[in-house]
Design a protein around this nucleic acid. Structure first.
Lengths: 344, 344
DNA sequence: AAATGCAATTGCAACGTTGCATAACATGTG
DNA sequence: CACATGTTATGCAACGTTGCAATTGCATTT
């Protein structure tokens, strides 16, 4: 007479398996079952086996709401997803990387898309005050990123894709942008370029500064002319294409270009080509690549790769260790750029 | 003596605001506060105002774990993210669309990346049996998609990006692939093509069949030759490029091509161009476009657009209505293809 | 035989919320 | 004045979990 009136029905109509169910089946108390499942060492081995068996047979999975209410642990990590369009399929790769890393753990991933960058502190504030997640992953980090500041102040577990300039250390995983720029400059110099240009966007990120600094330094070392085209972030693809066209026919056309974004590379190459430039001949171009499709599009062009899938995985592993209390000093890693040089 | 030992500390050290807090502040009982906040009409207006004021002043937000434990409502929607790479930035656009639609609601988005397609029923099964979300969004739906079957059987709220062939109706939002194919064929015919080819991948989706059927029908009506290049899904971008190259130099080269994917379009165009074909001259090409970057890359080529951001928003709205109990018959919508014809 | 020590198990309260059943109170009716 | 009626507010139990304090059973020791 109770099975019909029970609220706890699953799709199939059977009652949900909770600790209570296991307790009833095994004849043990609820507390014992709970303790056993959490690996209580004071329990008899026989008891523990019995509980494990029953849990497995019944397909027990701890109720997230129960755990969360009692312990405060959400078993959720939050990805704050920047709206940036620089890198093709960045979101998919990052999410797949995270997903791969949390597979088999109790963690779920919630994604919080960001629409307006200046409101990003609201997002973080919401997560902090509502205990929405156990940890946060942010991307496109700035040197004095207010989101980082907030989470440091709150002592909340997070990891940033990108470094900062804060005195207090924090967990991060970052692309080694300095090496990227240096590699690119050396490659261009090696190909005989004497007047190179860096096309780069979004100066709000730390990577921007790292690239610019390294670019200048390495060009100086190689003794070649180095120019920077800034503010590309605000340009639409069509405008960027126009820039490429202008560049192609300019009197002081550079003989080497480094581009930090796939989207800009596509637009730029379109303009340059339309302007009559043959890439790899009159102008050498090296771009930062993440998606795998661009090498197919531009098989003759050099590129340097960041593996965003791997970055997602690494960020996640760092974050989980941070959540488990690891010292942030041990949670700082860099990914080496992977050069893809064409024809020697 | 209790403030120090309290567990419920927020980052700032202040106690978390719960119904109890409001009850203490207003001098009302916990039950009354709860009732009032949920809009209990039996309460005096004066009381309700008092509660609302206090809640606002204290910044009360209902605890998700508490609500979830008590009611079973998770306030979560789950996006099962297909690993497909056909469409550039599909994931970002979809997620942003969903994010935009749930903004201001109590819903959060969790994303479950899918690695192996044949395990997709495990994912759904997990969600169903663990009450992980209130509703699910799936993409890349097949005609007899087992995920759909499962959720129909379980009477679980979901919406699919794509239609199915099941007898039992369900909520969906889909791109009008038939119109896409028809539009494309007519455009090619109008440009004088007499021998057109459809390059299409992944025959596991319903869209595949819709496109193929419509393509054949419309070509027959126009009285032109119609070929289909199948199985493109399994080809790498490099292989696809090779296909383009082969096609360019083939004796029976088609004079018009329709491509259903951005990634394949990029690779294909690369091969065709390398083979000496000038798109828009010897061969006309129309592709399905979602990202906005391709028109910059191929300014001379026609395309037909699906707005994935809008699709994400629409899917979400349908799903939320479904969760609220709307009849599925009212939750089926199609998005019209948006032609972007170049030069008249 | 009572007391001690130890191993193994359990009762209880709490986390924040909701909804039912009931209580308190004021007002109107016989 | 006793009683019913309606309005407004509240007590209580439950959702599933955890961790502490307490209990049980049993073998040793005094």
């Amino acid at each position: 007479m109770s099975s019909k009136t029970t609220k706890n029905n699953m799709a199939s109509g059977t009652r949900r398996v909770t600790l209570k169910t296991i307790a009833e089946v095994t004849g043990l108390s609820l507390s014992t079952v709970s303790l056993s499942l959490r690996g209580g060492t004071t329990l008899k081995q026989e008891t523990r086996d019995k509980v494990n068996e029953a849990a497995k047979a019944l397909g027990y999975v701890p109720d997230r709401a129960g755990v969360r209410l009692r312990t405060g642990k959400t078993n959720v990590i939050a990805l704050v997803l920047d709206g940036s369009e620089d890198s093709i399929d960045f979101a998919r790769n990052m999410i797949q990387g995270i997903g791969h890393a949390i597979h088999g753990t109790r963690y779920h991933l919630t994604v919080i898309p960001e629409f307006e960058r200046h409101l990003s502190t609201d997002t973080i504030n919401y997560i902090l005050s509502n205990r929405t997640a156990d940890g946060v992953i942010i991307t496109h980090t700035g040197p004095r990123d207010p989101r980082v500041q907030m989470m440091i102040d709150a002592d909340f577990p997070f990891v940033s894709h990108g470094r900062t300039e804060f005195y207090t250390p924090h967990a991060y995983h970052d692309f080694h942008s300095e090496d990227f720029a240096a590699l690119a400059v050396r490659r261009l110099a090696g190909k005989g370029c004497r007047d190179i240009m860096l096309v780069i966007g979004d100066d709000s990120t730390t990577n921007y500064h790292n690239i610019v600094t390294s670019f200048r330094k390495e060009a100086a070392r190689a003794g070649i002319e180095a120019r920077i085209f800034q503010g590309a972030a605000k340009l639409s693809p069509a405008d960027m294409r126009a820039v490429g066209l202008d560049l192609a026919v300019a009197a002081d056309r550079p003989d080497g270009i480094i581009c930090d974004s796939e989207m800009r590379t596509i637009a730029l190459v379109g303009g340059l080509t339309e302007g009559g430039v043959t890439l790899g001949r009159e102008v050498q171009l090296i771009y930062k690549q993440t998606s795998g499709i661009l090498p197919t599009l531009f098989p003759q062009m050099d590129s340097i790769r960041e593996d965003v899938f791997a970055a997602g995985g690494e960020l996640t592993r760092l974050l989980l260790r941070r959540i488990d209390g690891a010292a942030v000093g041990d949670l700082q890693t860099l990914a080496e750029p992977q050069p893809h040089w064409r024809s020697g």
